[in-house]
Write a protein that binds this DNA or RNA. Sequence first.
DNA 1: GATGCGCAGTGACCAAAGTCCCAGGCTGCT
DNA 2: AGCAGCCTGGGACTTTGGTCACTGCGCATC
Lengths: 234, 234
Amino acid sequence: MTDERIDLAAVLGKTALLSTLSQPELQTLAARTVRKLFSAGELLFSEGEPCNGLHIIARGKVRIFKTSISGREQVLAVNAPGESIAELPVFDGGPFPASAVATEETEIAYISRRDFQAYCMDHPEVALKVLQVVGARLRRLVGIIEELSFTTIRQRLISTLLKLAQSEGKKTARGIEFQLPASHQELANQLGTVRELISRNLMRLQAEGLLDVDARQIVVKDVKGLSTLLDTTP
Amino acid sequence: MTDERIDLAAVLGKTALLSTLSQPELQTLAARTVRKLFSAGELLFSEGEPCNGLHIIARGKVRIFKTSISGREQVLAVNAPGESIAELPVFDGGPFPASAVATEETEIAYISRRDFQAYCMDHPEVALKVLQVVGARLRRLVGIIEELSFTTIRQRLISTLLKLAQSEGKKTARGIEFQLPASHQELANQLGTVRELISRNLMRLQAEGLLDVDARQIVVKDVKGLSTLLDTTP
DNA sequence: GATGCGCAGTGACCAAAGTCCCAGGCTGCT
DNA sequence: AGCAGCCTGGGACTTTGGTCACTGCGCATC
């Protein structure tokens, strides 16, 4: 038990929301925290459910998404350890605006709404921190709106390919090489479209000589060429 | 001058953000508030500019929007008196994520970032209120994303027509009658598309016998028919 | 009355997005 | 080996979205 508390306090201290707190404060908060374990693919919560507490990711990865009647998915965010999710329903009392699923084995630290709200009243700097985090989230959503309404799928795909190339690509003789981090289907969900279009657009870029594609293995041959495609008006 | 202060305090008291405050508190806040006047069509701020304070609408109407390189517009929100805008950049220190324009003669109460942040530290309940307001905003954005990624323009149009019919339609012998509140162009901006499609889709609905259209004058003849069109998968 | 100007309607046309469907490859399981 | 379940590739086709160009109307202004 003691081990758990110490561990939890460490986890809490690493989250952006609570980084300003002192050790003893983290301890008291940790005492009110519940651990929850989710296996890969398990739902944390679904859109529309009431929200009773704050989730903080201690380990694993969580995808936040909306689902349409026809079964299509639009990813809103993918969160990693140290990040909190669904801060807002905690404060406005409304239901979850989207669903959340663990994409791998995931451990959550859970603090009840009442406790966290009370904590914010006593520690206004935490409330301000929450506002900062929420600000980043809002900016991301505005970015998604911008992409959905101003760019083509082709451009969105190119943009994520370039990001991936930059973050995890390795320079080789043939170009910048990397692996797609997920199936075409999941990529499609993130870009708000369907599998076929991902496949087709990748092939098209290959035909144009900008990429080499072998299933998930990508070789970017012409970064500049790709970049210029981003600026052309749809 | 005295008049102004009293007036400002009244305005502040009516905003959702500050509704919990007492009269004297409103007075002290009002003393730190600056009035700003904007005429119709004038920009309050542009996307990317740094944000130095909180804007509260005292009178008029403000449209928040993004612009694409090709000149297209996507409306994120239209705010009315009593609402605050751009709360978030105030707290996270980042630039404005979108632009704002006054759609009619508009009066703004402006409080500097420093003052408002300090005020939140002293009055945590205000910070919590801000979180509530921001929560509503975030839900709206998620709603826009959902619409953009799951529905056709036709459906979005129908949905706003039904909302308008409900909020300001009058029942007549021919059906529910109302006026479009703006030009086709502005409507298109709100739905994230172009003028022609609004025009065409309205005509199409008329051809299908669901509406009667005469420029901006709309008569909804078949509410049920329209509603069912919303549920069909795109 | 002539001249602009903004707004709405429309036809032709093109590109992007999406649907349906099937083939082939790989993996893991029995 | 055989089968089931995935993921990817790709063909054929439809719908939707968007562009361009032009017409016509109403209104204000000169």
